[in-house]
Amino acid sequence: MKIDGIYHQRTLRAQGVARAELLRRTAHGEHRTVRPWYVTDAAPTDLLALLELGLRPTCLDAASLHGVWTPPHTGVHVFRPRMLRLPPELEDVRELPLRRGRMNGTGKRPLQRLVLHGPELRSWPDDDPVPDLGLVLEHAARCLPTVKAAELMESSLQRRLIGRGQLEQLLLRLPKDIRRPLSRVRGDAESGTETAVRWWFESRGIGVKTQVRFPYDARRVDLLVGRNWIIECDSREFHDDPLSYAEDRARDLYLESIGYRVTRLTWEQVFLHWPDTRRKLQTILSRGDHRHELRRSARSG
Rank of each mutant, 00 (worst) to 15 (best):
R220L: 04
T193A: 04
F201E: 07
P181G: 04
Y245D: 13
V147R: 15
R164H: 15
I230G: 03
F201Y: 08
D177T: 06
V208E: 08
P242Q: 06
L135Y: 00
I162F: 09
S156A: 13
R173E: 06
R227V: 15
D252Y: 04
G165T: 02
Y254H: 07
G187V: 00
V185R: 00
T193V: 04
R173K: 10
P145V: 02
V221D: 03
L172V: 02
D188P: 04
E232Q: 12
I231R: 09
E190A: 11
D132L: 07
Q211W: 10
Y245K: 11
S191H: 09
Y254R: 10
Q169K: 13
V212N: 08
Q158W: 15
L135V: 15
R159S: 10
I230R: 15
R219W: 04
G259E: 14
E247W: 00
A250D: 14
F238S: 03
T210V: 01
L172F: 10
L174M: 00
S235Q: 04
W200D: 08
R236Q: 12
H239C: 05
D128L: 05
E256Q: 12
G187K: 06
Y216K: 09
R251Y: 02
L253W: 11
I231H: 00
A250W: 13
E154R: 06
E168A: 06
S203K: 06
K209Y: 09
L253V: 02
D177E: 14
R227D: 11
S156P: 00
W200A: 05
Q169N: 13
H239K: 13
G207E: 03
V185C: 00
R227H: 11
C233H: 13
D132I: 06
Q166C: 04
A149D: 09
G187N: 10
S156E: 05
H239R: 14
L161I: 03
E168G: 03
G187I: 00
V208F: 00
P215C: 01
D128G: 02
R184L: 05
R251T: 02
P242T: 03
R236C: 09
R227M: 15
R160E: 11
S203G: 09
R213T: 09
W200M: 08
T210N: 05
D248K: 01
I231S: 02
F238D: 07
G187R: 07
P181A: 14
I230D: 12
G187Y: 08
L255Q: 11
L152P: 15
P125N: 11
G207P: 02
G205M: 02
T193M: 11
A196L: 10
L167Q: 09
G205W: 01
E154N: 11
D188Y: 13
R220P: 01
D248Q: 02
G163L: 02
Y260E: 12
L161V: 05
D132M: 08
L253C: 07
W124K: 10
G165P: 15
Q158R: 14
Y254P: 01
A250H: 14
Q158L: 11
R198V: 02
L137N: 05
D132N: 14
R249Q: 10
D126Y: 01
E194H: 08
W199D: 06
T210Q: 09
S257D: 05
L255C: 04
G226K: 01
Q158T: 10
W199G: 03
L171Y: 00
L152R: 12
D126V: 04
W124D: 05
I206H: 00
N228H: 07
P145D: 11
D217S: 06
Q158K: 13
T195P: 14
L133P: 15
S155I: 04
K209C: 01
R219L: 10
V225H: 07
E151H: 13
